[in-house]
Design a protein around this nucleic acid. Sequence first.
DNA 1: ATCACTAAGTTGAACGATCAAATAACGTTT
DNA 2: AAACGTTATTTGATCGTTCAACTTAGTGAT
Lengths: 347, 347
Amino acid sequence: MAKATLVSLAESLGVSRQTISNVINAPHRVKPETRLRVEHAIAESGYRPSAAARQLRTRRSMNLGIRLMPVVDGINGSILDRFLHALTEAAQEDSYRLTLFSAATDDDEVRQYEELLNVSDLDGFVLTGTHHGDQRTAWLLENEIPFASFGRPWSDTEDPFSSLHPWVDVDGGAGTQQATGLLLDQGHTAIGFIGWPAGSGAGDDRRDGWRRALQAAGVFADQLDVAVNDGVPAGARAAESLIAAGATAVVCASDSLALGALSAFRSQHRAPATPNVIGFDDTPVAAAVGLSSIAQPIEEAARDIIRVLTHTLSGDADAGRPDKHLLLPPTLAQRVPHPLAGNGWLG
Amino acid sequence: MAKATLVSLAESLGVSRQTISNVINAPHRVKPETRLRVEHAIAESGYRPSAAARQLRTRRSMNLGIRLMPVVDGINGSILDRFLHALTEAAQEDSYRLTLFSAATDDDEVRQYEELLNVSDLDGFVLTGTHHGDQRTAWLLENEIPFASFGRPWSDTEDPFSSLHPWVDVDGGAGTQQATGLLLDQGHTAIGFIGWPAGSGAGDDRRDGWRRALQAAGVFADQLDVAVNDGVPAGARAAESLIAAGATAVVCASDSLALGALSAFRSQHRAPATPNVIGFDDTPVAAAVGLSSIAQPIEEAARDIIRVLTHTLSGDADAGRPDKHLLLPPTLAQRVPHPLAGNGWLG
DNA sequence: ATCACTAAGTTGAACGATCAAATAACGTTT
DNA sequence: AAACGTTATTTGATCGTTCAACTTAGTGAT
């Protein structure tokens, strides 16, 4: 038998196409009796509405685009995994779906926007990893494509809370500040920071948190600040230099770096009774070796991003509108390193 | 100005809509001169074809669905990341896009198929992690939905190479067999295997490879076979019991297990000069600690899956058809453990 | 009996592309 | 110059919905 459509179903039932459409999209408009009759016929015939026809008419695809970031490091990458998951589920709950695309660079990402909008109807985009002078947000704003970003718009001059596009971010600085505060409470004064080279927004923010905590405590430790590219070996080397400079504890911008640092402390037999290395992102590996780490509420962030984006898309009035800009607080996952853990992840 | 369509563009250019359509879809049919004129006008007007209208007419969405598996373990999860990436890129090259969805169980996955087919037009699905008695493949076949799976159809009675649906898989058994062979060559005879409880298809296949290698060498080692659920701690405990039983080397069904095993060997100071623990999947963490591991050609697998699936969808004749069933050989990434590595990942 | 209102259902007209068939333009051959 | 075969372009119909406007019937107030 031929594939069922609204018309074919309507004919066989003796009602109009619109009635069937109403059963699907606005059941309250149909008399319960006929509704049941139609619903039964739908199930019977295996009728499936054509999404294309609906999209053509309603001008909405219920599809959101998201870029799959290049795999950099299996350790930190796992948080992206969680994010993608939460995002998919949140979108699903609001009847949206996620369309993947991959791009090597930001420029490439913009090219992909163009391409995707040409061949696919996307209602909006989710951005991750915003940074200074981000070309992508500029392009999207200019072309009036709806989007929301995980990451605030980093700018030296403008207040992120007055930005034109919705965003959700985690207050990394508050996290490192809290972590540093904890180490201070435990009696450490020579607390180092291992982070990334300046300019990355999120990285600078994390460094600032560490600095703020020390300043508040009246401790001067600017010389205990190291900037390296991410990775376990780099973290170990950085920690070695910090130990040589007298550091007794470190806060790190990532778990990869922290894992290296932990290893450095252990191999120098400088491990105190209480945890003295704190990582960032609370990855599974951190949990496995008992590394304390700053945990981002990533699932919550994903839900908020979807909420704020779908709200923009639904075009509702501002009444009852969720906040367009959200800065979520991280939490500190405190752990006691396993007695054997951390010794020699990679020298 | 209003949004440009084929008709509005055609009018302003003094040509017919079909000519513009041809410029986009079959440029060779249009006189170079007019083609340039049209192309210029397209760029000028910022015209974007409506994907929905095209889909409605052509009855193809160029969209493939893929389920995002639950995050289980940051270590083994990273291979899924690579797979998803490669799949996205391969799809992109063939002008297909990937639509994500998540499902907690297989039953749930089938429900999602239903739902997705109702609200979204998907041309097909990519399945991962096939297993014995897989409900999903059965449902998809019954409803005549095109799909391809990463993972052969596991069955005790039927030959996977005569299965009705296309699949691509990696010959895990060949990998563990080769790995075991290498350990035999190095003089080990008491070689253990740490794998998962029977029934998982891929897991059983890996165990079989180990067994085949030992049988071929005339070694009997059935008592050195341990089945545990995946994880670093479980691997460590399993290795301890194997060491107690006299094992001098182990092959593992995953890097998580291998990491635990490496740790167990080190903490018992039983580390020989040559690597005696071999993992599976060649994850970034394995690379970081210098763990030898069986590497799946995951990018190649992804490309092959897309190729075979898109071919099915294009409906071309069997001539020039790629193989519907592909079993790819893994490779062994041999590494020398870092002197400090592996000591106490988690006892 | 009239009017206003709501509820239930119908109908014509889009939405914006592609397919298939028809026509126009053009150089070649007879 | 007529007939022919390509190539270039146009036209009519169609894909399957939803929107907006319309009919019809039923309810209750005036």
